[in-house]
């Protein structure tokens, strides 16, 4: 039986392995969300075990400021009625960048697999990804990046290649050291020329 790990338990696991994720908090009211935002734009997301495609289902509200926050919050609450149990999470809006996916899965034959690909809404359109069996070595991580057709986009012409290799190695140790992770989606991870941040975490545990 697989179950969805709580977002913040997942975030703590990422922290432990040095994987950066966006500043986030559960919010239980519109006021809560406004307070979290302070003056910067935020994202509101509804998280439910019943919804995989959050953005497709309209469960992600981006770039919210001022009165938009309360409006978005009540919209999510009304959508949530059919998706109980659910929680609403507020996140700081990540800077612009390229959306990639970093994933993992336990294969019944070969054990843990690790994946990198073009992420966000492009995952299913281009299916541009590279996969390896864990544990991987630095060279494997390099090859994975080389295997992507979108490598020049994803690496900003090679500028963040080292950062992505490090990210893959960190996710590799996350997967290898936590046997109970059955599926992992960090999608999207927003990559920039000088860094990255995971803006969504989905971990299914066995």
């Amino acid at each position: 039986m697989m179950e969805l790990l709580d977002y913040f338990d997942g975030k703590r696991l990422l922290d432990k392995h040095g994987i950066k994720s966006v500043e986030s908090r559960y919010v239980s009211s519109a006021q809560d969300a406004v307070a979290f935002a302070a003056a910067s734009p935020i994202v509101l997301k509804l998280i439910s075990g019943k919804a995989l495609h959050k953005s497709k289902a309209g469960l992600v509200k981006l770039d919210l400021k001022g009165p938009d926050i309360s409006k978005a919050y009540s919209e999510l609450v009304s959508k949530g009625r059919l998706l109980k149990p659910y929680r609403i999470i507020a996140q700081k809006m990540a800077k612009n960048g390229v959306e990639i996916i970093i994933g993992g899965r336990t294969d019944e034959q070969f054990g843990k697999l690790i994946l990198i690909g073009l992420g966000g809404i492009y995952v299913n359109i281009f299916k541009d990804f590279a996969l390896r069996v864990c544990p991987i070595k630095q060279e494997d991580a390099q090859e994975m990046i080389d295997q992507l057709k979108s490598r020049d986009i994803v690496t900003f012409g090679g500028k963040n290649r080292k950062i992505l290799v490090k990210l893959l190695m960190d996710v590799n140790s996350l997967l290898v050291e936590n046997r109970s992770i059955s599926e992992l989606d960090l999608n999207p991870v927003v990559a920039r020329a000088d860094g990255y941040v995971a803006v969504d975490i989905r971990m299914l545990m066995q």
Binding site: F110, L115, N124, K127, F129, L131, L184, N187, R202
Partner: peptide, 15 residues
């Protein structure tokens, strides 16, 4: 998950 949808058994073998 998206990962499981992309990376099935054939893909695991290929990897």
């Amino acid at each position: 998950s998206h990962t499981a949808a992309l990376a099935g058994s054939y893909e695991a073998h290929e990897a």
